[in-house]
Write a protein that binds this DNA or RNA. Structure first.
Lengths: 342, 342
DNA sequence: ACCCATTTTGCATACGTATGAAAGGCTGAA
DNA sequence: TTCAGCCTTTCATACGTATGCAAAATGGGT
């Protein structure tokens, strides 16, 4: 890799000090006299020397690398997460090593093995599950794991999520208050806790109003599969008058099908609600009523959780559930309180 | 980090061989007898040992890490790039360390310094520029750099781009062939080669038809700034009858303004063309005529360029320019050849 | 000037691993 | 059986750096 690798020994020679002094100069919390520091600074600048993070990790046991597993970046939500999380960690002196997994998480365990090869200081799983065996491995290795927007029963796993169930409940309450009688649901990936909790909250809200789910489809978090689900669910003689689509990304697909293939009007014929509040939900072409996940707060909590675990070195898992906000836009029927609530 | 770190010495002890044998067992191209290999495999499995990539990098000079600098993931194009590039490199046994820079690239040099601290085997710059000084540094360190969808004059920098100029030219030719007389342009970030080349091609195409640009705005690759540019450019008494927006992401913003704020019909009143063919361009809500950048081929060429540079260890820069494809959809006036061309 | 407490410095070693070189083992041909 | 060539193994060392410890230096007080 390096043709002329400048090492701390080169700096020490030029500055007329020991390698140990050079190392201490670059290590916060150690003592170096001003005179020695000046000599080292000049020599390091002249040679263009910077410490080798990887060599340091051998001694310190700290790589300053966080492994990030994401299943797909197709949904506008996750690019935003990656960008914000990378920035937040960059500000803390850490950097994100990205690993792409499959939606169904069947290769996450192999990927986690690869991650551990890099001696990462922590792992963030965004929209992916990890086996208990691997969770135990990471725990034994002292590598903290934070699930981002996902929940698992394993007590060793920290998690930062929105209150998906409450969000689903809010959407049900909204549709009921708008007078909807035939409320349907399009699920995401069945193995995801977000999908399960959003649907559960939605069903509970309907049941509280004496309603049952009118129909249900599965979109697997994919645009095309959500399209297919919508086509199927609106093929009968009686169609839903409102539909909660498990995330915005799929909701766009459903809206496109309703408008451009079936000639239905939103919200006059069907109200559509999503979950996430990704950027296109705000665009006039979609103008989607949805639950906003507060990405900034989720990222901040994720970073705080990671930093605490890394600093304390204990295995104490931390669960943070953040409230989402109901954002009412033009995809739902209008009623008097049109302002944003919650 | 690690509480009970299992090392190759532990494996060697358990297997009754030397640490050197363990190392050779995990190093491709070295010799180990079947008998020794069996002993080592069993011991490693029993202990859950895997080699430490970072420790290896000290000896081999290879970290198996590629630094990836991206300016923003807001534009659907770059999440797709990150995802595909990460996967392709993952398949080659490399992993991507992500660094987020600003759009104007003013902090890329600092970020590159940080990247070099991690002894990366290569760097990919997606939508960012690097100073000549830092390019020289990387060159001296033997770290290959590949610009993704960006060009710079520095001969040390490899690059993989679409033929942005030809794409702009194609779009001009198309609009002219559809009879447009007042063609306008909304620029991206002025410091980006993609913006410059697309505009240049577009202007050349118009000039070849005896037309000049009707009006020009600047969107800086941001949805909101493209909206503002569109509002301004359509405020006069005479408005464009066609508009080339430097990328799809901004084109969506322009389309939203034209339809929902100005009550204009696309393409009856104004044809809109973009560049990239990101997923929403295919969605019925936008149905955008655009130039498709072949992300798969660009990623493949980027990986091939990186692998070659890493393998050969020379500093030979490689420039790959890939043809985009004109994709005609519903945002432009219709004429007889409605099929996709090119 | 001397004494004491604190700071600073260099030496020696370790982190986990790969590799050159020398020694030992194995196999096939004479 | 012996010998030569090739394969395999171990030893010793190095990669770039941080750190414990002992020795040296420094600064303040008497």
């Amino acid at each position: 890799m390096a043709n002329d690798k400048i090492t701390s020994n080169d700096v020490a020679r030029l500055a007329g000090v020991s390698q140990s002094a050079v190392s201490r100069y670059f290590t916060p919390g150690t003592s170096v006299s001003k005179k020695t520091a000046d000599k080292i600074r000049e020599a390091a600048e002249q040679l263009g020397y910077r410490p080798n993070v990887l060599a340091r990790s051998l001694i310190t046991g700290r790589s300053r690398i966080i492994g990030l597993v994401v299943a797909y970046l197709e949904n506008y939500f996750y690019p935003e997460v990656v960008e914000r999380l990378s920035k937040a960690l960059q500000d803390q002196g850490y950097h994100v090593l990205v690993f792409i997994s499959s939606i169904a998480s069947e290769n996450v365990d192999q990927i986690t093995q690869e991650i551990l090869d890099y001696q990462v200081d922590g792992i963030v799983l965004a929209s992916a599950n990890m086996s208990s065996e691997l969770a135990a491995r990471c725990h034994a290795s002292g590598v903290p794991i934070v699930l981002f927007n996902r929940l698992q029963d394993d007590i060793r796993l920290s998690a930062v999520t929105s209150d998906n169930r409450a969000g689903g409940r809010q959407l049900a309450d909204l549709l009921v208050s708008l007078g909807h009688k035939r409320c349907s649901y399009i699920a995401g990936f069945e193995g995801a806790s977000t999908q399960r909790d959003r649907e559960q909250g939605f069903r509970e809200g309907l049941e509280a109003a004496g309603l049952a789910l009118f129909s249900r489809g599965v979109g697997n978090f994919r645009y095309e599969e959500a399209q297919a689900a919508a086509r199927s669910m609106f093929a009968g003689s009686e169609i839903p008058d409102a539909i909660f689509v498990c995330n915005d990304h799929m909701a766009f697909a459903v809206m496109d099908v309703l408008r451009f293939e079936l000639g239905l009007r939103i919200p006059d014929d069907v109200s559509v609600v999503g979950f996430d509040d990704v950027p296109p939900a705000r665009w006039p072409a979609y103008n989607l009523t949805t639950i906003r996940q507060n990405v900034d707060d989720m990222v901040a909590e994720t970073v705080a959780t990671l930093m605490q675990s890394i600093r304390e070195g204990d295995g104490a898992a931390r669960r943070v559930v953040l409230d989402g906000a109901l954002i009412i836009r033009g995809s739902t029927r209008q009623t008097t309180p049109t302002a944003e609530t919650r």
